[in-house]
Simulated scan of single mutants.
Amino acid sequence: MRPYRSLLLLCALSIPGLPHAAEKQTFSSETARFKLQSVADNLEHPWSLAFLPGGSMLVTERTGRLRVIRNGKLLPQAVPGLPSLVVSGQGGLFDVVLHPDFEENRILFLSYAHGSSEGMTTRVARASLENGQLKDVDIVFEALPRSGASRHFGGRMAFDTSGYLYISVGDRGDMDRAQDTTDDAGGVHRITVDGEPAPGNPGLNDPNINNTLFTWGNRNIQGMALHPITGDIWTHEHGPRGGDEINILEAGTNYGWPEITYGIDYSGLPISLKTEKEGMAQPLHYWDPSIAPSGMAFYTGSDFPEWQGSLFVGALKLRKLVRLDVTNRRINAEEDLLTNLGERIRDVRNGPNGSLWLLTDSPRGKVYQAVPVQ
């Protein structure tokens, strides 16, 4: 069945005379009104946000720093102890996710770009956060082979309900790698917290598939979220010129890149003449033209009961927040928010206290909390 692509364009409403101060604007969706409260600013290309027990937050900066927000203020010093990483092109420090039992074991996971004489790649490290610093840093995943490209690292992560960690790796700018199941690029990997291939991975019984691979045919996934009811892992990925996709991950599924795509090359030439092919999954939803999606969260909070169950996606290229009305495994409608904010939305997070949080991607990036307006 073809993806549902209806679009409800809703522009942000601002208080007259204060068009450039986000905190002074009132924004409207089809069902709710809200303001953005700036919690932290002057972050260098913030990439990911994680909520700690007790109310503090961790924020990654792509330029290679892990920061802490405590009592509503950004601490001046970065968290020491990060693994060695490289900041080049799209590469740097990416995602931070907490172990499902973080409150007891203080373990977290970081994804990042790593460089060596053999090139660059996507790595994941496990570490303990103790007394404001990282300790016992251990590399639990490394995508191979490396390459000289500085783009399409992927780097989004999420835990499923069984406690397995999903890691996206982009095609590294070499599209054909996404169809090679003996290559770690262009797919999603599923591992245990100790870095072993997760039970049930398709490659455990097939020597032609790398044993951590869960899916392949993925161009560059930068959004990943656990569905709060079904337990499915949803993702979105960047298309080329058009063809950004939303998919639900299924073990051993080929999502088609570059054999099938709803986009074209940046040059304007076709990449493939096919949008469908036997044995390759259709996207649940796609965008054409591209919005350059990044960050992804299902809203389950209480601040905005009208948004319960909605899927939120940030957009870099088109500088907006997208709200998708979702029923089970179907997208019913789409709504554009924050179109007048003028910010690249890098990450979207469902907060622990019923709130929705955003990161903006710029040299002076911000952490915003959406606050309801009566």
Rank of each mutant, 00 (worst) to 15 (best):
Ser6Tyr: 11
Ile15Gln: 05
Gly17Ile: 00
Ala21Trp: 07
Thr26Met: 03
Thr31Gln: 11
Ala32Thr: 12
Leu52Cys: 11
Gly55Pro: 03
Glu61Gln: 14
Ile69Val: 15
Pro76Lys: 05
Gln77Asn: 08
Gln77Pro: 00
Pro83Ala: 06
Val96Pro: 00
Gly119Ala: 06
Thr121Lys: 01
Arg123Ile: 00
Arg126Met: 06
Asp136Glu: 10
Ala149Gly: 09
His152Asp: 11
Arg156Met: 09
Asp160Gly: 06
Ser162Asn: 09
Gly163Ala: 04
Leu165Glu: 00
Ser168Arg: 07
Val169Thr: 08
Arg172Ile: 04
Gly173Trp: 09
Asp176His: 12
Gln179Pro: 13
Thr181Ile: 06
Pro199Leu: 02
Pro202Thr: 09
Asn205Glu: 14
Asp206Tyr: 02
Pro207Val: 01
Asn211Thr: 04
Ala225Leu: 05
Asp232Val: 05
Thr235His: 04
Arg241Glu: 10
Ile246Val: 15
Thr253Ala: 15
Asn254Tyr: 06
Asn254His: 12
Ile260Trp: 11
Ile260Ala: 13
Tyr262Gln: 11
Tyr262Trp: 15
Thr275Tyr: 10
Gly279Met: 05
Met280Thr: 12
Leu284Ile: 13
His285Gln: 12
Trp287Ser: 13
Trp287Gly: 07
Asp288Pro: 08
Pro293His: 09
Gly295Met: 12
Tyr299Gln: 01
Thr300Glu: 10
Thr300Asp: 07
Gly301Gln: 06
Phe304Ala: 13
Leu311Trp: 02
Gly314Met: 06
Ala315Val: 10
Arg319Pro: 03
Glu334Phe: 08
Asn340Trp: 00
Leu341Gln: 06
Asp347Lys: 01
Asp347Ala: 14
Arg349Met: 10
Pro352Leu: 06
Gly354Asp: 08
Ser355Lys: 03
Trp357Tyr: 11
Gly365Arg: 08
